[in-house]
Design a protein around this nucleic acid. Sequence first.
DNA 1: TATTAAATGATAAAAATTATCATTTGAATT
DNA 2: AATTCAAATGATAATTTTTATCATTTAATA
Lengths: 135, 135
Amino acid sequence: MINYTDILREHNLKATPQRLAITNELYTKGHVSIESLYELMVKKFNSISLATIYKNINLMQKNSFIQEVKIPQAKSVYELTKASHSHLACTKCLGVEDITIDLNVIIDTITKTSSFKIDSANLVVSGICKNCQRS
Amino acid sequence: MINYTDILREHNLKATPQRLAITNELYTKGHVSIESLYELMVKKFNSISLATIYKNINLMQKNSFIQEVKIPQAKSVYELTKASHSHLACTKCLGVEDITIDLNVIIDTITKTSSFKIDSANLVVSGICKNCQRS
DNA sequence: TATTAAATGATAAAAATTATCATTTGAATT
DNA sequence: AATTCAAATGATAATTTTTATCATTTAATA
């Protein structure tokens, strides 16, 4: 169990118990939607406000501490910011996994063939995860 | 100006004036958000209901006639369903362009390295479009 | 431990989306 | 061309999602 107190402060975020809990949930679960994050937090703080969840998610995003991952045909999930990577989304269990893929070839191609100045590339691959393939 | 009457019917959608207008807007604009679609439609039908927009967008999506494109840090846009392709999203003007890129190499790589059964790959590249690079 | 800016919780407000239902209409049939 | 009927529309209510407000509490610093 990582202690995120200092890491939060480095992002100009006070290390409140609520934030530490949110952070730990993102760390252990990897990817969490707003609603399931709220459900998880209610178990730990029986009176946490949904507004606190939203305010923290928004602020943490603004401070680049976490990131939203938009999944086709599903709700967004949030994850701790880490090195650039892509995502695998299971259409059955709705789980999301990280996957590291080199997109440089593609970015180079686009740089040459289009007149866009590229900042980032976002890849979400949808399918059926290992677990859901049985059943 | 393409006549979408038959194409709508092929998707089990009655060719109402509202639907033909929505379809034409998607065809000419390429990518449109719900709110701008509503604004455009109000100009043509001074009493179109926002519910009609939503109901049609949802139904057309279900019937694979159109598709939602989720853009990081921006509102979703909708487009007519066409051959598989990727998207370029301008972070300045919020415009979206289609781009055809071969993702097969990447899909093959993921197929080998992960245990996912892949259905589709969704790539959105964000940056600054040609127009917005000046100004 | 005192101070203060920021965070929290409760709740209202706003925005986005869906549901309901009476009326209208597209399209198939006569 | 008139009839029929399932489906679509528009108006609006209801629901869901997200943001704003503000009194109270708390983390961090002195």
